[in-house]
């Protein structure tokens, strides 16, 4: 097997084994109900994690995702309830605002040569701050359209519900996979993650691509915020605090290399599902503290970083040619 598929295969295998073990203990976990809820409950995380995957494949990092999710939710709530806009119009505005916010961060990263960590950290504070200025409280969204969308689902055999937002997440993964693996933009993202200097010398439009990557990341953050507001029927400025780290964890567990250049969108889906599985297990158990989720995620993350180290050193990658001394 091509070694670059190994982390992905490992994640998938671990998910299957872990799910098998859960079922062995709680046979009720093997049902379309549970699977459907997996998708619905993690839809916003999954959508944001697709954006984070692009950013990380390009060798960057985006710490602002959680804050963008919060801002998007609050902005949707304000536009719909205070200004009385139709939700679809509000969504369009939110997505444009989010994408421009990301494009601005991308431009700062490229043109000012500031590390993505710093730029997106600033972006995180700004987005969270703006959301809190818009409102301090949770704004409930009571709109016919929201009720319709939240209630929409496709009944799976076995009584499970594939909700609209769960379906949307799957769609985002599908489109994300197409963009990453089947478009020139996608190849540019991998190229920049591999070696930015070489990429520039080979004619890759590094600036435009960087802006595009962060715009896409924040656009998906905005979409995740909308989904979160649909999920909770409200907008809350402190929603999804720290969620960017869950997204990054999902990406890394999904086999994407944190230093960039290698990774798969599909892996991130498995990463998100693994997190969901741990949560579901804790719900089924009923006695464990929900903080065990974090411990499990921490262990998984650590394991995967070790695994990647092993895979990439076993691959025997030549060390970079040294500057030939005289």
């Amino acid at each position: 097997m091509n070694p670059r598929y190994r982390p992905l295969a490992a994640t998938t295998l671990i998910f299957i084994v872990a799910y098998g073990l859960c079922i062995a203990q709680y046979p009720a976990m093997w049902s379309t109900r549970v699977l459907g809820n997996f998708l619905t409950d993690n839809a916003f995380l999954g959508i944001a994690a697709v954006g984070a995957t692009f950013v990380i494949i390009s060798g960057g990092i985006d710490l602002s995702v959680g804050a963008v999710v919060g801002l998007a939710g609050v902005l949707s709530a304000v536009l719909i309830t205070t200004l009385g806009l139709h939700p679809l119009a509000a969504f369009a505005i939110v997505l444009v605002v989010a994408a421009s916010f990301g494009a601005g961060m991308g431009a700062a990263i490229h043109f000012l040569r500031v590390p993505p960590f710093i730029v997106t950290l600033a972006g995180m504070f700004m987005a969270r701050g703006v959301a809190s200025i818009l409102t301090q409280d949770s704004i409930p969204i009571d709109h016919e359209f929201y009720r319709t969308i939240s209630g929409l689902y496709y009944r799976l055999p076995g009584g499970g519900r594939l909700s609209a937002i769960g379906l949307l997440m799957l769609l985002v993964f599908l489109v994300g996979g197409l963009i990453a693996h089947k478009t020139r933009f996608g190849s540019y993202v991998y190229a920049i993650g591999g070696n930015q200097t070489s990429a520039a010398l080979m004619g890759v439009p590094v600036g435009l691509t960087t802006i595009g990557i962060y715009a896409l990341g924040s656009f998906l953050g905005g979409l995740a915020g909308i989904v979160y507001s649909l999920y909770t029927s409200s907008g809350y400025p402190l929603a999804a605090v720290g969620m960017e780290l869950d997204a990054i964890a999902a990406v890394v567990i999904g086999g994407t290399l944190l230093t960039g250049g290698y990774g798969f969108i599909f892996g991130t889906l498995i990463g998100v599902m693994l997190q969901g599985l741990v949560q579901t297990y804790i719900v089924f158990d009923g006695t464990l503290s929900s903080w065990w989720t974090k411990i499990a995620i921490g262990l998984l993350l650590f394991m995967f970083i070790l695994l990647q180290k092993l895979v990439f050193s076993a691959q025997g990658r030549r060390p970079r040619m040294q500057k030939a001394p005289a």
Binding site: R184, S187, Y188, Y190, A191, G193, G194, N195, T197, S198, A199, L201, M202, G203, V204, G261, Y262, R317, R320, M321, A324
Partner: peptide
Amino acid sequence: QEVNLLPNMTVSDNLFIG
């Protein structure tokens, strides 16, 4: 001198990227 290509991408990507 230091091959300025993309080690993480396929040979055909390296030849035809863009």
